[in-house]
Structure formats: C-alpha cells, structure tokens
C-alpha cells in the first residue's frame, strides 16, 4: 500500500470519476454530458482492472510450467467489467439516439436553449 505506484491507478480513478461527474453536471451540451458519463464509467472500469492486476501476474491459463501459474491476475473482475462495458456502450448508444431525436424536435442540443423553449411553451 505504501508503494506509490501501487496506488497511482486509484488516484487516476478518482480523478477521472470527479472529472466525469463534473462534466455531466456542468455541461449544457447534451453530447458533452454523454462524454462525461463515459469518462465517469471508464474510471470505474479502470478501478476494476487495477484491483485485479497483480505485479508479475500472468493470465490464469494452465500450462505445463507449474511456476507460471503461481501468480496470476484475477480473471473475474475482467469478466465483470466486460459486462459493464457492454452496459456502458448501450447506455451511450441510447443516449446518443435520444440526442438525435431531441435535435430533430428542438433543433438544438444545448440544455439552456431547450429550457428556454419549454418556458415559452408554457406561456
């Protein structure tokens, strides 16, 4: 734990998380929001991968050489994160599809402008 490069990935995770979340909340452009969301999710992917990685670990494949098998990276988080990536991709796809439709009906993808249009609609 004390070794700085053992935890540097976690610092990267935190930085990406915060950046991503900030973009999601602060950006008015809907596409940028989706980008922010992707960064946010990527941070989590990195977190899963980095906790599975062991220094000098190999892939957990049984070979003739017994020694190589002694230190291996945990495969489960990799598998999990594959699923999460699939989920993330579909979320992105759906989000972008929605943006296309929003662009068609509001003629803009800036949230502030859409809000203005909603206001005028109410009045």
């Amino acid at each position: 734990m004390t070794d700085w490069h053992a935890i540097i990935t976690y610092w990267a995770v935190i930085t990406l998380l915060v950046f991503g979340l900030y973009i999601v909340t602060a950006s008015s452009n809907l596409v940028k929001k989706i980008i922010g969301l992707n960064i946010f999710q990527a941070a989590v992917f990195v977190m899963y991968i980095s906790m599975a990685k062991i220094l000098n670990g190999t892939a957990p494949i049984i070979t003739d050489k017994i020694n190589e098998f002694s230190a291996y990276s945990n495969p489960l988080p990799h598998v999990l994160i594959l699923t999460a990536i699939v989920v993330g991709v579909s979320t992105t796809a759906l989000g972008l599809a929605l943006i296309v439709r929003i662009k068609q009906s509001y003629n803009t993808i800036e949230e502030t402008e859409i809000r203005q249009q909603e206001q005028t609609e109410k009045e």
Partner: peptide
Amino acid sequence: LLAAFRYLIMGTVGATFILIGIGLLYA
C-alpha cells in the same frame, strides 16, 4: 425525450455508483 434523457443521466450515475460500491466490496 428530455425526460428520458435526464432519467438516463441520473440513472446511469446511480447505477455506476452501485457498481463502484460492489467493486470495492469485491476487492
């Protein structure tokens, strides 16, 4: 459309939070 989009953003953030939590537990 906008309602769905906002829900998507909020919902994904929420789900990703859960994912982080589960990851930490697993770790």
